[in-house]
Simulated scan of single mutants.
Amino acid sequence: MNTFGTLFRITTFGESHGPGIGVVIDGCPAGLAVSDEQIQAALDRRRPGQSDLTTPRAEADRVEVQSGIFRGETTGTPISLYIRNQDQHSHDYSHIEHAYRPSHADYTYDQKYGRRDFRGGGRSSARETAARVAAGAVAQQLLNQQAIKVNSYVSQVGAVAVPVSYEQLDLSLIDTNLVRCPHPETAERMADLIRQTRDRHDTVGGLVTGVVQGLPAGLGEPVFDKLHSELGRAMLGINAVKGFEYGSGFAGTLLFGSEHNDAFYTDEAGRVRTRTNHSGGIQGGISNGQDVYFRVAFKPVATILQPQSTINDQNEAVTLAGRGRHDPCVLPRAVPIVDAMTSLVLADMLLRARGNRV
């Protein structure tokens, strides 16, 4: 349950309030040039305390490469990346040692294991995703060799949504604002909503859109490990995710087949293309060479600084209010996590595709 991937595999470890968190990457080919700076840059996009829209927990999230990379290249052996925790306030969670926070994993962890680490949620904390982001940055450097681009951005916060598709956006603007939305006018409205929500001691959810460009045709397995099913599994394994759709998604159910089918043609350069892309770049579970795009739904953060009714581990009714430092909206920091999980899926699929032909 702590390992993800088939050939390009990662195993994460650590808890929110332990000494640190980390990841072991197994199956990365030897000879891949890996930049520590690119790994750190990805972690900097996810780290807490980066703006007034996120949790003020102050973690530098400095990555330590402990094995598997020598003189800037992978050796083919397991890559170990470690991130030390430095700003834990474990006392902020003493009030929930015996109480179950609404919509958290407190109760379910108790039922599964008969015990739980109540300090920040322990293993269920989104702090664990920093390890995935570090691993995803390595996977992205493998994708760079094939000129495959992965971009994710915040496309909706609450009811405030980007009014155009990704094709009409300049994705280079994603990191030009605190929300990570490449539509500047909408980004301002999103930021205002997050601040208003924070000031009410509440939280808000929304959508992240992911886009993959330059992906070759032929990636994905025909039955159980379809490309979209692996992407969906990756996204649904991220904390606070409630839904995943690719291509036309649920909106496609409103179209007739004659409207929804993507007609093939050959362009001036002799490349096979489709006139529309309702398929989201995936047909039969296999990439068709068009852009892959999808949306990931994130719920409002479960910890709110308001009194809520719940029970304790003796099944007694209690009132509980959140304490500590929490995001009023996870979306700005979720963008690099979606990027990372997408990159991990695609790196794995690239390696698996190498064995499909003589």
Rank of each mutant, 00 (worst) to 15 (best):
I174D: 07
I174T: 12
D175Y: 11
D175H: 14
D175N: 15
D175G: 06
T176W: 00
T176F: 01
T176M: 10
T176V: 03
T176G: 10
N177M: 08
N177F: 07
N177H: 09
N177L: 05
N177C: 09
N177W: 01
N177A: 05
L178T: 07
L178P: 01
L178H: 08
L178C: 04
L178M: 12
V179R: 01
V179F: 03
V179M: 12
R180S: 11
R180P: 02
R180N: 13
R180Y: 06
R180A: 12
C181S: 15
C181A: 08
P182H: 13
H183I: 02
H183M: 06
H183C: 12
H183A: 07
P184W: 06
E185M: 03
E185N: 08
T186Q: 09
T186R: 06
T186F: 04
A187R: 03
E188M: 10
E188D: 12
E188I: 11
E188N: 09
E188V: 11
E188S: 11
E188Q: 15
E188Y: 00
R189E: 04
R189V: 00
R189N: 05
M190Q: 15
A191S: 13
A191R: 10
A191L: 08
D192V: 04
D192R: 13
D192H: 12
L193T: 11
L193R: 10
L193Y: 05
L193H: 01
I194D: 00
I194F: 11
R195K: 14
R195E: 08
R195D: 01
Q196N: 14
Q196E: 13
Q196C: 09
Q196D: 13
T197G: 05
T197W: 07
T197Y: 10
T197V: 13
T197E: 10
R198Y: 07
R198D: 14
R198K: 15
D199R: 13
D199C: 00
D199Y: 07
D199M: 09
D199I: 00
R200V: 02
R200T: 10
R200Q: 15
H201A: 14
H201R: 15
D202L: 08
D202Q: 15
D202W: 04
T203V: 11
T203L: 10
V204S: 02
V204A: 00
V204Q: 05
V204K: 02
V204N: 02
V204E: 01
G205Y: 03
G205L: 05
G205C: 07
G206W: 00
G206C: 03
L207G: 03
L207T: 13
L207Q: 14
V208F: 01
V208E: 08
V208A: 06
T209Y: 08
G210M: 06
G210N: 03
G210A: 10
G210P: 05
V211L: 07
V211W: 05
V211E: 00
V211Q: 08
V212G: 03
